[in-house]
Simulated assay, not measured.
Amino acid sequence: MAPSVHACPWCYIGKARFEKGLAEFAHRDEVEVVHRSFELDPGRSKGDTALVIDMLAQKYGRTREEAASMEANVAANAQAEGLGYRTEGRDHGNTFDIHRLLHLAKARGRQDELLTLAYRANFAEERSVFDDEVLVRLAVEAGLDEAEARSVLADPEAYADDVRADECEASELGAGAVPFFVLDRRYGISGGQPSEVFVKALEQAWKDRPATALTAIGEDGAACDAGGACEVPQA
């Protein structure tokens, strides 16, 4: 289980690192990956968006130039994983609707496809995932029915309980920041860890089945907390 947040660059990077680790795991074909919801900036209203650089400058009390340097450091981490990353022009906003649409995608067996497209649109392309029309197009690209996607976005309660249930579960598991990965409800991995940490965790979880209590593996990695604050690596 990996809580998913589209405004969190470490979730984008962490997903790529996890997938590299999973590809090296001998029993990878027997692993089921489920993405769970975790909101950043849940108090922000729908439609209230800001440029990421401006948000970072305000949040951390930095100049716009300093905020741009912070983004450049994160971009270097993304690019090292082979990911596209735009440091200018990206929006920041409330992610609740994206999570609701991801639950529709999960019900239709297209969750990872939509998540991958949403990350790419948000971090690498000139498409704002806080625009309903963009979300509908992404849903169609992921293989979902357009009318059904529009219906979910038009109804603020559609899949809302599923999102809240994920958030409650994350809290119960001790996930105060994301990305946060849980293996067999036993092992917890916090932050965008290197791929070798995921290989080790997968091997340990496989060896120790059945699962019991949650055990942390590795030092805490870079992450974004529920207040929307994202750690920035040192240059």
Rank of each mutant, 00 (worst) to 15 (best):
Y12Q: 07
K15V: 04
K20R: 15
L22N: 05
V31P: 09
V34L: 15
V34T: 15
R36S: 14
D41K: 09
T49P: 06
A50Q: 12
Q58I: 03
K59S: 08
R64S: 12
E65R: 07
V74T: 07
A80V: 00
T87Q: 09
R90A: 10
H92N: 11
N94P: 13
F96T: 10
I98F: 07
L102I: 10
K106L: 15
R108C: 15
R110L: 13
L117Y: 06
R120K: 13
S128K: 04
S128E: 04
V134W: 03
R137F: 00
E141R: 11
E148W: 10
E148Q: 15
D155N: 14
P156K: 06
V163K: 06
V163T: 08
E169L: 10
S171E: 13
G174F: 03
A175F: 01
A177D: 02
V178G: 02
V178E: 02
R185K: 11
R186G: 06
S190F: 01
P194Y: 01
P194C: 01
S195C: 00
Q204C: 00
W206D: 07
K207Y: 02
A211W: 04
T212L: 11
A213S: 12
L214W: 02
A216Q: 10
E219T: 06
A223G: 04
G228S: 06
V232N: 00
V232Y: 00
P233F: 00
